[in-house]
Nucleic acid binder design. Structure first.
Lengths: 349, 349
DNA sequence: GTGAAAGCGCTAACAC
DNA sequence: GTGTTAGCGCTTTCAC
């Protein structure tokens, strides 16, 4: 299948010069005479010549393409990250190939192999929820492909990472609930193998400790799936307790939404009876304001930072032989307070 | 920048055979002896050989890649379409490159050119809101690149299209409001240059006509931007009318959300005072249930159908020289009724 | 059953 | 200032 592609040869033939001269003229090489340049550029324009990137990539062993692996595109957070990546990549002359692991380790393995086969210059990866072993990543790293991990990072890799300061965010959220007068704050916890889960729990614990409040195991419930249903079930369990919590800090927004449903169905009021705070890893859409206070994650910035780090690494490598030292960028969260989820009328502690 | 890529040559050298034999052995060519095949495959496995897709693409003048241009990734509808496209593409052995026009014609032009330069085998396009001239598309079509348009289609092209039956969907939605006893139904209209806008208006008009209800110009307000604010302003205008509407059929969900805000701020009840129905072109997230009745669009199926049509066209073309006849696939919408936005207690007409 | 050679489109020494 | 040549990794005639 060959389409009507104009090549450098076509221009050369038509002008009676050699392909290399055409190539040089097109990239404004100083050796080429102005007349030749003019003739070449005009003809290229006329024939609507478009360079064949595939040939270029093969020739230079460089595709100018970044590969991205994300868990799922439908989440606002990740689609925002993509936009951040594109922003930086395009202005640096790189294309972007996006793949979704759909939270499946198997799919992640396929994706990483496909990206390698496409000879992307580097990869930006946020690992799936299932990922707890990393041989598939190591084997590609061993081939010398630069990688930057973001949000869900592979901590042991000798690669750069971009993360959000989940610990501080979680601490801030918990402190906020404490400031509103909450005394029995529950925590809906995330998937056990993700670093962010530990960070958020730790922030929660630290806030309680600093306020000399006890950490009660029965107030910490696991929500590994990240679904609304799961949050609902977890909250129902909490509501059945003889001494039920007066606040819930959820590890993500779906869990928070589920909890809110359970609370409403139990005939209780939010935030008067129970306050709810979510963590917007799974935040929904810029168009929508969810009815809960939440810890907002800077997706666009995360994409930008990750792409910057990766491109730096790629271009560093193409010059020297040394790898640049891996870097870790930590981005701040932002607590978005919506009055609907705050306990009103209680005095600030 | 060359990474540690194992090539066919490496295998050939190590085994003391020629690259062409290795190539044949790897693709199970009948000529090659079983022993050679075995040796080659084992060594390839051992060295973790991965074929270089770039070289393959250049050689065969076929990249096995589909290019996609969508307005914006953050919208649930479009990210669903992407998943549908990937579903079909991957199982047919194609990769997918996604670009976002960000609703900008300029960006769409850049994207289409970039995809062509990458020599994608075909393109799946949903045009931007700004797109009203189509030279940029025609110029690539002229080069023989197969294209399939979806949702926001280029109607005059001699290409296949996949659309949603917006007319029937809009008619059904309007009829639904009529069935609930609404008599003054307003319509928030979309961007004037999109075909879907006309279809939805037409469905609205047809439903009114069939019920012998008048079409009142003052009840039709334009909302070209697709934002919440816009819907809000439009609804405020409608509410100020001496004889205000008792229902609003919005051209998209953000407009519907905005209208709902305006209605609530005016102290009116939904759906008792004014019923609201949205059109989920911009529907938010699978995780979230928006509090409105809406016409749901089958994004995943749309992606699947579009990819199927495109791949068929590509493979048809690579064999014969004739183009296959363009096809138009029309998908049905689904009216999702949530009681919160229905006028209750009024008798069915 | 296997090897040699050509070529996809492009660029970058190396000539002159 | 321009042409010639080689080669990126792979497949595929055409030899033998």
């Amino acid at each position: 299948m060959k389409y009507n592609q104009v090549t450098i040869k076509d221009i050369a033939r038509e002008l009676g010069i050699s392909p290399s001269t055409v190539s040089r003229a097109l990239k404004d090489h100083p050796d080429i005479s102005p007349q030749t340049k003019k003739a070449v550029n005009e003809l290229a324009e006329k024939l609507n010549y478009q360079p064949n990137i595939v040939a270029l990539s093969l020739r230079q062993s460089k595709t100018n393409t970044l590969g991205v692996i994300i868990p799922e595109l439908v989440h606002f957070f990740f689609s925002t990250v993509i936009s951040g990546i594109e922003d930086v990549a395009y202005s640096a002359g790189y294309n972007v190939i996006i793949t979704q692991s759909n939270e499946s380790l198997q799919r992640e393995k396929t994706d990483i192999k496909a990206l390698f086969n496409s000879r992307v210059d580097g990869m930006l990866i946020s690992v799936s929820r299932e990922t707890s072993s990393f041989e598939h990543i190591e084997s590609i790293l061993a081939k010398g492909v630069p990688m930057v991990f973001f949000d869900r990072v592979y901590e042991n890799a000798n690669s750069s990472t971009v993360i959000v300061d989940d610990l501080s965010g979680a601490k801030e959220a918990t402190q906020h609930l404490i400031d509103q007068g909450c005394t029995r704050i529950a925590h809906l916890e995330g998937p056990p193998n993700l670093g962010i889960t530990k960070q958020r729990l730790e922030g929660y614990v630290q806030a309680l400790n600093e306020n000399k409040m006890p950490v009660q195991k029965e107030l910490i419930v696991s929500c590994p799936l990240g679904t609304i249903e799961e949050g609902k079930i977890a909250a129902e369990q909490l509501l059945k307790m003889p001494n039920r919590p007066d606040a819930i800090f959820a590890t993500n927004d779906p869990a928070a939404m589920g909890a809110m449903q359970a609370i409403k169905e139990a005939g209780l009021k939010i935030p008067q009876d129970i306050a709810v705070v979510g963590f917007s890893n799974w935040f929904f859409s810029s168009l929508l304001e969810p009815p809960l206070t939440s810890v907002d994650q800077p997706g666009f910035e995360m994409g930008q930072e990750a792409a910057k780090l990766l491109i730096r690494q790629i271009e560093f490598k193409s010059k020297d032989n040394e790898d640049p030292a891996p870097e870790t960028k930590v981005l701040k969260t932002r607590l978005i307070v919506r009055d609907s989820s705050l306990k009103k009328g209680k005095p600030k502690k």
